[in-house]
Simulated scan of single mutants.
Amino acid sequence: MSAINYRKDYIPKTTACNRRPGYAMSATTITIHNTGNVASSAANERAWLTNPTNARQASFHIVVDEREAIECIPLTENAWHSGDGSAAKSGNRTSIGVEICESGNYAKTLDNAAVLVASMLKERGWGVDRLRRHYDWSGKICPRLMYDSGKWTGWTAFKALVEAKLNPIKQEVNDMIVYKANVVVNGCKAKDGVLIDGAVYVPLREMSDQFGAAIAWDNVTKTATITKEAK
Rank of each mutant, 00 (worst) to 15 (best):
Y179H: 14
I141V: 15
L131G: 06
T109F: 04
W217D: 07
L145G: 03
V162A: 04
P203L: 08
S149V: 12
E45D: 12
P203Y: 10
V194A: 09
I96E: 12
Y23F: 13
N18A: 06
I32P: 00
E71M: 05
G125A: 04
D84L: 05
N186L: 08
G85L: 07
G139H: 06
C101G: 05
T225G: 03
D148Q: 15
H33F: 12
V185A: 05
S138D: 11
W137A: 06
A27F: 09
K13G: 13
I62H: 10
D9P: 00
E229D: 08
N186A: 11
G198P: 02
N219F: 10
N92D: 10
S103Q: 14
S90G: 07
S2R: 14
K189Q: 14
S149Y: 13
A157M: 01
A43E: 14
Y201D: 03
K151W: 01
N54G: 05
V194H: 02
K189A: 11
A214Q: 11
P21D: 09
R132V: 00
K231M: 07
I30K: 08
E71L: 04
S103H: 12
T15Y: 00
T28K: 14
N5E: 10
V64I: 14
E163M: 09
C142S: 14
D84K: 09
N5Y: 03
Y106T: 15
A113D: 04
R93I: 08
E77W: 05
I196R: 10
L204E: 04
A164L: 01
S119V: 01
A118D: 07
T14E: 13
K89A: 04
E71V: 02
V162T: 11
D197T: 06
G187N: 07
A190R: 11
E206Q: 15
L116R: 11
S208F: 02
V128A: 12
L121P: 08
A216C: 00
N54S: 02
H81S: 09
K228F: 00
T50Y: 06
V38T: 13
Y106N: 07
I196K: 09
N182Q: 12
G139A: 06
G127A: 03
R93E: 10
R46T: 04
I32Q: 01
L161N: 07
Q57I: 02
V38G: 02
N78Y: 01
D192C: 01
A230M: 10
G83P: 07
R205M: 02
T76D: 14
I11N: 13
T29L: 01
V63S: 04
D111N: 14
